[in-house]
Nucleic acid binder design. Structure first.
Lengths: 179, 179
DNA sequence: CCCTGCTATGTCACTTCTGAAATAAACTAT
DNA sequence: ATAGTTTATTTCAGAAGTGACATAGCAGGG
């Protein structure tokens, strides 16, 4: 089973969603650490339905197709629970900025410094955004492990930590590249 | 041009290498933040040669094929320099452990706690390894921006920071999931 | 009334990436 | 001797992922 499948099972773990809603969630709460295009999601949902991991209610949709509200079956829930406790397979992170850094010596130093300054700003903005979301989640008690939204809160915390790490690293480079 | 192409140009920026040596480097110094299989690397090197970005000397190899020592051409070096200073395209990070965390509520709590404890240990080990490499690099003066190996040192520093972030996060979860 | 944007699903061509196998010389350890 | 590992390149089938397009109802602003 592909990781995409598990990502979709994970998306549905807290309640039924339409394919469209999953696409939206792949941008923010799950999307901090997983993404998929709708062109991947819709066919995969169909295959998972065929395999009995999910099923759906049908409702009249706005466009030419029916709205499908997907929900985990017992088999899907079992498959998810079993996968969750398995050690994750390490897929090495890919980051273009760090890759560029490796060959930094082959570019103009001042231009690279400007690049890190610009990236730092992007990370600062994203950090502020995540921090605001985190404060809101805490105000709603999501930081309690007994709360069903604790999982989403924990991934958000990872987002905050990762942004802070990137920001610090970019700022370190800006300082270090000073002539 | 695909990012793989730029990764290969970056790999060659400091001097000529064989395809095999690039495969090795994709595990450690570059590999902290970029990876590719040899089945991607060899055909891409051939295409890049056809496009005039790299060329190579030929030497007798151990196996049935000749050894090819690849080197950037002027065109390749120009292409690399131009790409380096361009803002990186954000490809969202994918991490199975964080994805699992999102659906944490669907699994047994003690089993999840054990998972984070095991992951914390992996990160602690990797952190120690990177830290040792970092100390060695500093002893050799790679932390000076004027040193040609400064780029590799900076990526290693990112590796250290990222491992520390993941370790802290895992330990936070172990504590938080205490009953 | 028209245009834009949002909801909602589905499809296609294409690129990228993974995993495995084939080949064979040279070196290392038993 | 011989067994196993490392060096080194090439190729292939298949899986995963990207980007763009098609369809169409409904809401809101100008």
């Amino acid at each position: 089973m592909s990781t995409l499948r598990y990502a979709l099972l994970a998306a549905l773990h807290a309640g039924p969603l339409t394919g469209y809603e999953i696409v939206q969630r792949m941008r923010r709460p799950i999307g901090y650490y997983w993404t998929a295009q709708q062109s991947q999601i819709y066919p995969e949902l169909a295959r998972m339905t065929a395999d009995g991991l999910i099923d759906h209610d049908v409702a009249a949709g706005p466009g030419p197709h029916d709205r499908k509200i997907h929900r985990l079956t017992a088999a899907g829930r079992a498959e998810l629970a079993q996968w969750l406790v398995q050690p994750p397979q390490r897929r090495p992170p890919k980051d273009e900025l760090v890759l560029k850094t490796y060959a930094l010596a082959a570019a103009d130093r001042e231009a690279m410094r400007a690049l890190y300054r610009a990236e730092a700003q992007k990370h600062r903005r994203r950090l502020d955004d995540y921090l605001a979301q985190q404060a809101q989640a805490e105000a709603q008690g999501h930081d309690d492990p007994a709360n069903p939204k604790f999982g989403a809160y924990a991934t958000l915390r990872m987002g905050v930590a990762a942004e802070r790490t990137m920001l610090d690293w970019c700022e370190w480079l800006v300082l270090r590249l000073e002539r």
